[in-house]
Design a protein around this nucleic acid. Structure first.
Lengths: 123, 123
DNA sequence: CCGTATCCGTGAGGATACTG
DNA sequence: CAGTATCCTCACGGATACGG
């Protein structure tokens, strides 16, 4: 059912693309951070507060990763003490359909799993 | 930019759906296996051969996971020695758009990253 | 405020050998 | 053929403490 029989190397190429995408958005926090950046207030402490349970270490690390992948832009303001703003790049916007699709399927899947849990015998 | 400001609990719900989806398709082999099942020849050894570098241990474990998630159906045939067929369920088909979206974004992202690697100064 | 350094537990996944 | 059992490694991520 996947686009009419691909040659092995072609198929590998497609798989690589999927893997690339997953590698970028995987990890416990990546998507939460991106969504948090879409919501406003993007200073470090703000983000940390907005994402329950994340530690500064993780937030810092993940932000660096995202910056590497050009999904986040880091801006330092010369205040005292310094303030830093993180913003989602236009490239991050292109992730929107992906996240939507994942969300849709996540909901569908939840329903599917729950419907099978039903125990039919009640009386 | 994410659907007009969501309340915190609502947002959490959306995130949970995304996380659910990622949890199912994550792991090094899940998608490769699903795609392999879409390609035909679905006996254990066949799948193992079709997926480079996978070990029997991993294939066995991942197939069990997928079966739990109702993405794969396992059928045992009473031959000698036994043969077992794994097939993708209709529910697995619903993953197709998700995988497509991931593939598309993976390719887009690759281009984005490569274009920035360009060193403009040549002469 | 904005992080980094260090230490550590856990689990994903690989290698290899073995069973029904 | 279709797996399981065992052992091992290493990266993910949490906790805590500290520096600019």
């Amino acid at each position: 059912m996947i686009s009419e029989k691909l040659s092995a190397p072609e198929c590998t190429k497609h798989l690589m693309a999927v893997r690339d995408a997953l590698d970028v958005i995987n990890g416990k926090w990546k998507i939460q951070i991106i969504i948090a950046l879409w919501e406003g207030n993007t200073r470090f402490k703000d983000i940390e507060r907005r994402i329950p349970k994340i530690t500064a270490r993780m937030l810092s690390k993940e932000l660096k990763d995202l910056e590497c992948h050009q999904l986040v832009k880091r801006t330092v303001y010369d205040t005292l003490p310094v303030s830093v703003e993180y913003t989602a790049t236009p490239h991050a916007q292109t992730l929107y359909p992906v996240i939507e699709e994942l969300k849709k399927w996540g909901n569908l899947h939840r329903k599917k799993i729950l419907e099978k849990q039903q125990v039919p015998e009640l009386a």
